[in-house]
Design a binder for these strands. Structure first.
Lengths: 348, 348
DNA sequence: CTGTTAGCGCATTCAG
DNA sequence: CTGAATGCGCTAACAG
């Protein structure tokens, strides 16, 4: 009998996979009951629950998410927009986000912009087609179209990795500007005479730009009368090799600079390792600072002085905020500043 | 008039977002026509296409993917299962996969297993609920349940990052075993007397285990009569800090070893930098080899001798195979060996 | 080239 | 505690 049931399963046009109705037939209940057992087993009699679960097992039923989404108007997904998947630093944030969200039953769907606002627009539009229940974004600078789409979607939105007084909705981040101002203050305290900001500023990377602004502001404050120096490429990838290239440019352009403030640890690490090869003593001949506190920073010799940012926690806190919103619990404060921390090591 | 149209949009129960019917009303056509314009504009009159596109713009319509999926029985998504999102090496594969797939109109949905077969099972089940049109997996070792689910799903599957004679469906990879055997052969040629394999072998990381097997096989062949040496932790994360820790253990256990073969560049890099700190001359006092050819390998001093694997290409080729299958084009060969390459630098 | 009809598989009412 | 009816937004099949 049971075997017959199993075999009767599957028919019809597109799908030949097991449906809820199939499970219901095997369990001898209605489809609604199966649905209930799946979503709120407490409201069903224990025997029914067991019968249905057994039927699910024997039929190898896997719920169709698209159908569930369409019927309930909840996709149980959260969209996350990051600049690059392969950038480990955002992967950490994603991991924090995903961990907390999975606990609450939400899946994360990822889109990446390659540091382009134009691509961000396409990505957001695309992700909206999947009707996520909430949005997570890296960055606070977006095109009007993006802001508009997000506002019209009328779902919770959390921006991150930066700071602004006018977030689209909620914000979990820190001030890149303040971070670099702090780095400059540290440089002053340590007695560095001529700090230069070095970075790659890709068109859509507003966070790197904010860091440069922070450098400029810091210089104005702590090095009055000294003309700030910046060595900036606008299309180098964020790799150690770029750091090496930027080091050469910076040395050529400002040979008397005694400190290079890089916009990212990856660049700084590449520069520091290149210094090692070229016999440039760090920090005696040239000091180096980075940004991000990547793992490599603590392993280098000398250790890389850098600014640590709460990569994982940003994801986690954003997720917590979103889950609370999605459960209609009382909203938190609109913005959450997680700060940063200067980590002094040997390189500066 | 147009304004009135816009305002009449939205009503009903769950959704208050613009639907295809809304667009149709504004454009003065049927919903079906809107659908057609979206999917095969070539089969519609240019004026209709323009009218519909204008209506889409004015209403800010974004297609509901779940509904489309349900009706067409194609989700236009490909599921990708990787050990860790934050592991940059898999992120590269993902990037290759995603780039090619996006071109063809497919979205990638990601699941991560944290190197656990148990978690892989849950992840695969979960992803199957979204009815992906195809599956991409890192690794060739899976539980029976996973294989079973995937076979029953009756969709194209590509496994990667390893080699097997019995793939679930298709395979794009290389032999980890052969790679380490080659490393051992290189060690022999270079005159290293006592190579030790050092790695972290997390429970579900069969690729690392295969590398160790390759080391053992290589030793049997190239170092006959010499007892192979392995220093293996089973729960250390794949980080530079772990490499440092493993270096200490290896030095304590096999002080006379003149070459350490690490299961990953990250470990090797951590060890090499630790050697630098401890004043151990590389490669004179101790040679080091890694695996993966991470970016850091070429920046270290000395450069890290390692095995390069086609991280990005594996994703790209897998995607091409999947796209061809999904278009019902003639299937390729079942397996594709992308090989590996020993990159000799200064460390060994 | 375009419109009509009929579901896709599930969850939300509402009755019992 | 369980079942029946209804529709989510879209597309496949058919006409015309």
């Amino acid at each position: 009998m049971n075997d017959t049931d199993k075999r009767q399963i599957r028919r019809r046009f597109g799908t030949n996979s097991v449906t809820m109705a199939d499970v219901a037939r095997v369990a001898g209940v209605s489809a609604q009951t199966v649905s209930r057992v799946l979503r709120e087993p407490d409201g069903c009699s224990p025997q029914t629950v067991e019968r249905v679960r057994e039927a699910i097992r024997s039929t190898q039923y896997v719920q169709n998410h698209a159908a569930s989404h369409l019927a309930s108007n909840r996709s149980m997904t959260v969209a996350a927009v990051i600049p690059q998947i392969a950038a480990s630093i955002f992967a950490e944030t994603l991991q924090g986000l995903s961990n907390v969200l999975l606990q609450a039953g939400y899946q994360v769907i990822i889109g990446h912009t390659d540091y382009s606002h134009e691509r961000e627009e396409a990505v957001v539009r695309n992700l909206l087609g999947r009707r996520p229940d909430a949005f997570f974004l890296v960055g606070t600078h977006h095109t009007d179209a993006v802001r508009d789409m997000l506002v019209r979607a009328a779902i919770p939105v959390v921006e991150s990795w930066a700071w602004t007084d006018a977030p689209i909705d909620q914000l979990v981040g820190f001030s890149n500007q303040a971070a670099l101002a702090e780095a400059v203050a540290y440089a002053r305290r340590r007695g560095h005479a001529r700090p230069t900001f070095v970075g790659s500023l890709r068109a859509g990377d507003d966070r790197a730009r904010e860091r440069m602004d922070g450098y400029l502001a810091g210089m104005a404050q702590h090095y009055p009368g000294f003309a700030p120096r910046t060595v900036v490429a606008d299309e180098l990838p964020y790799t150690m090799a770029s750091g090496r290239a930027l080091l050469d440019i910076a040395r050529a352009r400002h040979p008397d600079s005694d400190l290079l403030l890089f916009s990212s640890d990856l660049l700084a690490a590449g520069a520091l390792l290149a210094c090692q090869r070229q016999g440039i003593a760090v920090p005696q001949a040239l000091a180096v600072m980075g940004f991000g506190d990547y793992e490599v920073a603590s392993e280098l010799n000398p250790g890389l002085t850098t600014i640590a940012v709460p990569t994982v926690r940003m994801g986690e806190e954003a997720a917590r905020i979103l889950v609370r919103r999605l459960r209609n619990e009382t909203p938190d404060t609109r913005t959450l500043d997680l700060g940063f921390e200067l980590v002094a090591r040997g390189s500066a």
